[in-house]
Design a protein around this nucleic acid. Sequence first.
DNA 1: CTGTATCCAGGTTGATACTG
DNA 2: CAGTATCAACCTGGATACAG
Lengths: 122, 122
Amino acid sequence: MQVMTGGERMRGDVFDTNCPSRIVLDHVTSKWAVLVLAALRTGPSRFSELRRRIGGVSEKMLAQTLRTLEADGFVHREVAPTTPPQVTYSLTPLGEGIAERVTGLVDWIADRIPEIQDVRTR
Amino acid sequence: MQVMTGGERMRGDVFDTNCPSRIVLDHVTSKWAVLVLAALRTGPSRFSELRRRIGGVSEKMLAQTLRTLEADGFVHREVAPTTPPQVTYSLTPLGEGIAERVTGLVDWIADRIPEIQDVRTR
DNA sequence: CTGTATCCAGGTTGATACTG
DNA sequence: CAGTATCAACCTGGATACAG
């Protein structure tokens, strides 16, 4: 935790490293969140189904990612009171918006990978 | 480093955690890269000027971030052969594209912070 | 099935000191 | 001015075991 000692930077914009926008940005661009958002764009999904579709994710990280996205209002969690319990995750309207943009950014980059690789070799 | 043991996931899309797009996404959405891109959108800037404008960044992290962005082709580094040396950083055309989109994403999120905070308190 | 708790290795960060 | 080198501290993430 870093303390602002003076009034040197009090704007609420992107230059404030700990502004809410930056925190949410980190959430939605995190390693697994990108994949969760992409997976949920095709429709609601259960925990174990997500775990299967997103290869390599641990239970801990999937649960953590889903909790964060839920807290931010991007993902809806629906528990069916059965035994064993069934939990279904889906995108909220807000979640669909962010999912579209995040995957859009990934796709924009993907389209330019040839150019980027080109620079790297030069 | 994780090894793919089978052919279970060979697509080149977003579901491949280590695909080039994801790597570049991590670069440009990293803590300091977002701020560097935002700072450079207003025009070329020198090392120490960037350090002043982006409060809290260490020399090491600024240098590291700039080297990564340069390697990806988003930032151009111009050295004037004077003493003391003058190094000027600027966005490449590719860099302007990504800067626009990254800050756009941050702004999109910023616009919805009220909604998000609303969910958090509920 | 859907998680939570714990532990630990590895990577990332930042302070500091130093160089050309 | 514009960095690089070094090192300790922190944090993240994954494996494992366990619980409701």
